[in-house]
Design a protein around this nucleic acid. Sequence first.
DNA 1: GACATGAAGTGCATTCTTGCACTATCAATC
DNA 2: GATTGATAGTGCAAGAATGCACTTCATGTC
Lengths: 202, 202
Amino acid sequence: MHFMSESATTSLREQKRWETSQRITLCAQRLTDEHGLDGFTMDDLAGAAEVSRRTLFNYFPSKLDAVLGEHPEIPPAVLATFHTGGPHGDLVEDLAELARAVLAVKQPDRGQVELVRRLMSTNPRLLVAAHERFEGITEEFTELVLEREGAGFDRARARLLLRLLLALFDTALVELLQEGETRSLDELFEVQLATTRQLFTS
Amino acid sequence: MHFMSESATTSLREQKRWETSQRITLCAQRLTDEHGLDGFTMDDLAGAAEVSRRTLFNYFPSKLDAVLGEHPEIPPAVLATFHTGGPHGDLVEDLAELARAVLAVKQPDRGQVELVRRLMSTNPRLLVAAHERFEGITEEFTELVLEREGAGFDRARARLLLRLLLALFDTALVELLQEGETRSLDELFEVQLATTRQLFTS
DNA sequence: GACATGAAGTGCATTCTTGCACTATCAATC
DNA sequence: GATTGATAGTGCAAGAATGCACTTCATGTC
């Protein structure tokens, strides 16, 4: 017979872990939207996500982290390729490849992005946490670039590049909100990337 | 806040275990209905019920058992009450109380009963297994009656009583199919019980 | 200010789920 | 009639979810 094949690449365990993580974050975001960050308890969230309160803390170290969701994760294989000189050899193009890998894992839709942005603007603490997280990501990837390019590469230069790419990504998110439903996030990312190239290629 | 109270009497663990058990059996019955007992593998069932194949065997010792579902379980408190002379002191009435406890745990609906009966008639092996199970239940409760009533009570008499009650229960199930949706199983059980009393209380 | 209350977060033992390698059987095929 | 392949069922170890008791901290109340 053979129904339910879906994807042979992820074990049942990974799949369920992912679903639970997503469910927790989605519930946390909805609760925050409806009642504010302090308007619900971890017990409420546990109930909504249908897990125990303890399990919540197995997934996320704090309430804020639960709302923000899991760090974007890049498949080790893709990361390894980047580390050894990337698939194309061009730094910018290879970083873009990493971004594509992130988008391949989970493509947030318009509603998701809209909700998260609303939460940010309503709730400063979330914004702070998100900002810190982005700082962390910047550093992390800066380090990655330095490892790849060798000690000759200037740290400040790497950091600038990462900041630029994050800004580019963020712009794509805003575009997603402004557009009708015409283009998906990965498409918009490509557009921003092309435009940026055009702008700087005199 | 406090949404999601539902029932404080069952722990999250018990609740999830129950749901999984029910999901497995429901899927197993549907698969049997659509493809026959040998028309699907345990792997298929695992996929349909969204658990690992191993977990299937944690719940049920065999494929047949998965299709038949879990033994009806009576809350220990109710059982203890019966054991020490029952809530009313009248043997028949107290056994009826046990039956009510079973129905209180899970009330199968018309569709469920219909499906299971169809499976039975289509698939002899299931019927055999079900029959064996009923034999087991009879013995189990016979033992219970003997423990309660003391050694003075005749084993054959206890067994007869249990057989009668099971027949009564089975009649209620058939009635559930024949009726429109007018009465639920527990109501029908009461009707059969009353009628039986009438028949034998000359 | 002492004190109670409620909620976040942690440590740890228990139970459950999964993955994987294994055996046993049965049926088809050569 | 040996062999191969598919499927039922089991043993065991690793990983995940739960329950519960605990600490910490903030806020409100007397």
